[in-house]
Amino acid sequence: MNKRPDWYIVFFIVVVLIQILFLNKLQFNGFLIPYFYVLFIMLMPVNIPRAMLLVLAFILGISIDIFSSTPGIHASATVLIAFIRPFMIDTSGIEDQEKGMIPSIQNFGFLWFLKYAVVLIIIHHFFLFFIEVFSFKAFFFTLLRSVLSSIFTLVLIVISQFLIYRK
């Protein structure tokens, strides 16, 4: 089930708007913040060319950066998971006839998606939070921030899956 290109453009804009207008403004005692926009990278079709995925990730990250006055931080974390994603998919036993599909819960099952999402979100968030403070000074505090925020992002992403692909 390949989507048309304009579906991806709308998806991109919606994800960026949700991130900058709602999630960046959530306030839970100052350090819990979900980065839901990684969903866009996760839901690209399995057979998307690697180079294209990297470029898309860069554009997505830099868009979030422009709106949150953090040049380069989100872009670097997003490009990193875009680079890792193909390895995740290659090692997770996907058949050749499934190559054009979107890696969603609906297509590959809940457990598969959960594993896929947890790894990508954790890599993204850890990288992002440590680049942001750029020191290991408050190591455990930053670690706690990334773990809690990862859990929050994961919950949002799983819920969104059920909302988008409801039958």
Binding site: F58, G61, P71, G72, S76, V79
Partner: peptide, 14 residues
């Protein structure tokens, strides 16, 4: 290579 170039660009910005 593209990955390295993009990360380089990001870190320059940072």
């Amino acid at each position: 290579i593209l990955f390295l170039l993009l990360e380089l660009l990001c870190f320059t910005l940072i």
